[in-house]
Design a protein around this nucleic acid. Sequence first.
RNA 1: CGGGGUGUGGCGCAGUUGGUAGCGCAUCUGGUUUGGGACCAGAGGGUCGCAUGUUCGAGUCAUGUCACCCCGACCA
Length: 438
Amino acid sequence: MFKETGVQNAYFPLFIPKSFFSREAEHVAGFAKECAVVTHHRLMNDPDGKGVVVDPEARLEEELIVRPTSETIIWSVYKNWIKSWRDLPILCNQWCNVVRWEMRTRPFLRTAEFLWQEGHTAHATAEEAQAKAEEMVGVYAKFARETMALPVIVGHKSPNERFAGALDTLTIEAMMQDGKALQAGTSHFLGQNFAKSFDVQFAGKDGSLEYVWATSWGVSTRLMGALIMAHSDDNGLVLPPALAPIQVVMVPIYRTDEEREAVLAEFEKIKSELSSKGISVKIDARDTLRPGFKFAEWEVKGVPVRLAMGARDLASGTVEVARRDTLGKETLSIEGIADHVEGLLKDIQKNIYEKALAFRTANIRKCDDWNEFQTEIQKGGFLLCHWDGTPETEQAIKDATKATIRCIPVDSVVCEEEGKDIFSGKPSHRRVVFAIAY
RNA sequence: CGGGGUGUGGCGCAGUUGGUAGCGCAUCUGGUUUGGGACCAGAGGGUCGCAUGUUCGAGUCAUGUCACCCCGACCA
């Protein structure tokens, strides 16, 4: 995903000393309510009976925070790495798990512990940092659209929804099949906030001493949830071919060992043709399961294309081709099948994206009336509304409806026009995206 | 932390006014099957979350306790 971005992989500690964590005031305020805190380093046998208890003697002098994100520990290290303009930029990425102690969790979409990648960059100028934040949200949007077949809207977060400690947060927002919004990835322009909190300055070409400019950005296992919630149907997962670990599965149908051998031999030929085109193929040769069971099982797993072949096909030189996205089937000649499958995979990738996009388009509408807003927003989907730009109005709308401003779009939907705020009636120059979010 | 619910073979569940536990799936054996989650016959598998109490007798009643799930408040 990060090819061409110049980013290097790194790994920083899981535990953050409480004093590091508390250096950036807004950051602390944003995360304080959801931190797991390590207070002790030892257990002991319960003196009164069974089991173990925390050893009260083993209390830490300074508590450790299990990272909810790594800005603080990373900037405490960057302080030592950055002295001169020659040290910049620094572009680090790490894959790690983080902990945010949510009151209420949801599988994949909001878990107390999640795996993610987080990038942290340091730059000599504000312009360069801002450009990097924009570049990275673009990387996420491209991955979501082209690989996950997930249409996303790129935009800015409103001040209320911004990352704690950021001057600007860019987001990719997706719509799930129930009409709710999902923030699928974010990229932050952090200004000089962390540099100032951790005293990270560099000597410029002209000898001046200046604070460093920062960005951070991340996507998580929430993307797995996005994939499931955006594409799945009642038969299970629907994987975009560009992401599927197995793109084509082959299921043999046979009565006798002879038929089995003959079909499998034919499958091997097709497999080598497909493999030479870079297509990943699985031959399901298990002979303890019946074909119907295998069909259903591979559908649950979301494999994009299934080929089935039996005695009938052997006699006629054909193969049954089934596609996961539409559940359509057709019987085709084995001749030229590899070319057909190659094209079919591209078509499925395109179709899954377009289906999701059509759903989103059908569920985005403009709304200019506050009474209408209150009933419409509960039905799901995105409402494009005028907003006066104040946190007070945004908060009032949230309190009344649970809807939030998902983003101030920079692509996908046209929003620039004059109007009046849906709630306050004050003048507005553009519409923003409102929705109920996960 | 509030509100609601559930704990019974591996999984999902039933169990009536208290009478000594059953069904589906899965598993095992044999046979027939195999183009959409097979069928028939047989078999194995449970201190009913835990504790105490009431009773001749508790899966069932009472009290306590533990665990898990759903909804809400917080949030990527």
